[in-house]
Amino acid sequence: ENVFHPVECSYCHSESMMGFRYRCQQCHNYQLCQDCFWRGHAGGSHSNQHQMKEYTSWKS
């Protein structure tokens, strides 16, 4: 089941984030949609070496 997250992806700027959401544990307010995370995208001061937390629902 695809879950809708009402936040913007920090890389592709999609405002309709579906599926899993990934939030960086080091960068303030840096979040990736499932597609950008799986493709290994990073931007700004974010590094792929940073720990990311996976969210499967909006409330989590």
Rank of each mutant, 00 (worst) to 15 (best):
Q25Y: 04
L32D: 03
C33Q: 02
H13Y: 07
P6R: 10
A42F: 13
T56E: 15
S14R: 12
Q31P: 02
C24Y: 00
F37W: 09
S14T: 10
Q26A: 11
R39L: 09
Q25H: 06
F4C: 11
K53I: 08
C36N: 00
G40F: 06
N2Y: 10
H5L: 08
Y55P: 09
M17L: 12
C33M: 01
S60P: 09
F20E: 15
C27R: 00
H13R: 09
W58M: 15
G44A: 03
R21L: 12
C9E: 00
H46A: 06
E15D: 15
K59M: 09
V3H: 15
T56Y: 02
C27E: 01
H50I: 02
C9V: 00
C27Q: 00
G43F: 02
S57E: 12
S47W: 09
W58S: 12
Q25T: 11
V3A: 09
D35V: 09
Y11H: 10
G43Y: 04
S14I: 06
H41C: 11
E15P: 14
V7I: 10
Y22C: 03
Y11M: 09
E1G: 04
C24M: 01
C12F: 00
K59E: 08
H50D: 03
Y11Q: 05
Y22L: 04
S10K: 02
F20C: 14
T56S: 14
E8L: 05
Y11E: 07
S60N: 05
K59S: 14
S57M: 12
P6L: 06
H5I: 15
S14A: 09
H28V: 13
G19T: 07
Q49R: 12
Q26S: 10
K53Y: 05
E54T: 15
Q49C: 09
F20V: 14
C24W: 00
V7P: 11
S10Y: 04
H5W: 07
P6T: 11
S16W: 06
F20R: 15
R23A: 09
F20Q: 14
F4G: 11
Y30Q: 02
L32T: 12
Q26K: 04
G44C: 03
P6A: 13
C33D: 00
C27M: 01
S14E: 09
G44P: 02
M17H: 14
H28Q: 11
G40T: 03
H46R: 06
C12A: 00
G43R: 03
Q25W: 01
Y55L: 13
P6H: 13
C24R: 00
Y22K: 05
W38G: 15
C33V: 01
H28I: 12
S16P: 10
Y22F: 05
R23P: 02
R39D: 09
Q49Y: 05
Q34V: 06
N29A: 10
P6C: 07
N48G: 10
Y30L: 03
C24S: 00
R21D: 03
F37H: 08
H50V: 01
S45M: 05
T56G: 12
Y30G: 02
T56N: 10
H13G: 10
H50E: 02
Y55R: 08
H41G: 04
G40D: 07
N29G: 09
R23F: 10
M17Y: 06
Q31R: 04
Y22P: 00
S47K: 12
F20A: 15
C12H: 02
Q51D: 14
H28W: 07
H41M: 11
Y30E: 03
C12L: 00
S45Y: 02
C27F: 03
F4D: 14
T56H: 10
V3W: 04
G40R: 06
Y22V: 09
Y11G: 08
G19Q: 12
Q49A: 13
C27V: 00
D35S: 10
Y55Q: 09
Q31S: 11
H5R: 06
V3P: 13
C9P: 00
Y55G: 09
C33W: 01
H41T: 03
C12Q: 00
H46T: 05
S10L: 01
S16E: 10
T56I: 05
Y22H: 09
R23E: 12
G19L: 07
H41W: 04
F37V: 10
K53N: 04
C9N: 00
W38Y: 15
D35P: 12
N48W: 02
C27I: 00
C36I: 01
R39N: 13
H41S: 12
G19M: 07
Y11I: 06
H41P: 06
S47Y: 02
H41V: 14
T56C: 13
S60C: 05
A42L: 04
H28P: 13
Q26I: 11
V3K: 15
M18F: 14
K53C: 07
S10C: 11
Q34T: 06
N29E: 07
S57C: 13
C36M: 01
C27D: 01
C24I: 01
V3R: 11
P6D: 13
F37N: 03
Y30N: 02
C24D: 03
Y22M: 07
P6Y: 05
F37A: 10
G40A: 03
Q34N: 07
R21N: 09
Q34W: 02
M52N: 01
C33A: 02
R39W: 04
N48L: 05
W38S: 15
S45F: 05
K53R: 08
C9Q: 00
H5T: 08
S14V: 13
S60H: 14
S16Y: 04
S57T: 11
E1K: 05
C27P: 02
M18D: 14
E1N: 04
H13Q: 06
W38A: 15
H5D: 10
W58N: 15
H46Q: 04
N29F: 11
S14Y: 04
H28K: 14
E8F: 07
R21C: 08
N48P: 14
S57W: 06
W58L: 12
Q51T: 12
L32I: 14
W58K: 15
L32V: 08
K53V: 14
L32E: 03
H50R: 01
Q34H: 07
Q26M: 03
N2I: 13
F37S: 05
C33E: 02
Q49E: 14
E8S: 08
M52V: 10
H41D: 04
G40W: 04
M52A: 02
H28D: 15
H50K: 03
T56R: 09
E54V: 05
V7K: 09
Y55I: 09
H5K: 10
R39C: 09
C33F: 01
